[in-house]
Design a binder for these strands. Structure first.
Lengths: 146, 146
DNA sequence: CAGATAATGTTTGAAGGCCAACATTTGGTA
DNA sequence: TACCAAATGTTGGCCTTCAAACATTATCTG
């Protein structure tokens, strides 16, 4: 399967946080796809559905902030969700620059189903650590970006 | 700066490892660019230079394995490094399918300079945690992908 | 040895992200 | 009030990545 016989020397790469962060993220996202993929929901789409569901009527800018995505990136996320009839844009009457975002009934159903599957996914990837370790991990990760 | 007044409800997003992993990775990579950017070296390029430097003559496949990148992705990484005269491809005499990868003198110099700057970068991002916490963090991250 | 199978590097196409530039709308201020 | 600055959403260009298809070369197997 792998093509390393003489074993690669990683030098100090294994001491770099960025290296491990990237690999962990790739692995976790892959498991997410496997667990939730039947709904055709990616981590990014779940994030958007979750925040919209808990904050109906919010603007695209607020959502982009919450997800730490660029405004322009969010446009295509919402385009995709709207094309699948999970979300709708409505013009905000207070501020005509804004779009107010809402879940459709389909959106609410997909979100509910996805959330359940995500519970399993989180359980699976956290298998190798104790609840305390998991909490500590999240804490340390937040420390890296807050 | 930010556009949240009524404060966004994050629902259970803050309990998802993937969410924090992505945000931490983005932040760390951004700091990397700031610290090392003067050399125009990205995390991916540093990874390639590091592994090649410690394993001169290795093949593109072995390198892709080490970096957890797709073979096809690595082609463009090496294209870029070769265009900048930091790496050279040589046809392997033992296996004529393979390219053996080597650093040029320029490549060695850039790698050495970059490594120093990366030390500072790692110090900065690890500022908020103890050495034990940092080691634990890396350990937990490895647990997610190994 | 001959033919099938696998490994290697490459190209192409698609997805998802960023940034810069833009039009529209709002809000502050002189 | 009239102007200038900021906020909002969108578009287009670019980069990085993966996956699939391909040609070339090596290797295994009958």
């Amino acid at each position: 399967m792998s093509s390393s016989l003489p074993d690669v020397d990683f030098d100090n790469l294994h001491n770099l946080l960025g290296y491990h962060l990237r690999r962990a993220q790739v692995a976790v996202f892959k498991d997410f796809e496997a667990a939730v993929g039947s709904e055709s929901i990616t981590p990014g789409l779940l994030g958007a559905l979750t925040i919209i569901g808990a904050n109906e009527g919010l603007s695209q800018n607020m959502l982009a902030d919450a997800l730490a995505l660029d405004r322009s990136t969010l446009v295509s996320v919402i385009d995709k969700l709207e094309a699948r009839q999970l979300v709708k844009r409505e013009k905000s009457p207070q501020d005509r620059r804004r779009h107010a975002l809402f879940l459709t009934n389909d959106g609410r159903e997909v979100l509910a189903r996805t959330k359940q599957k995500v519970v399993e996914h989180e359980k699976k990837i956290s298998q190798g650590m104790s609840p305390e370790e998991r909490a500590k991990l999240i804490d340390l990760l937040r420390g890296l970006y807050k």
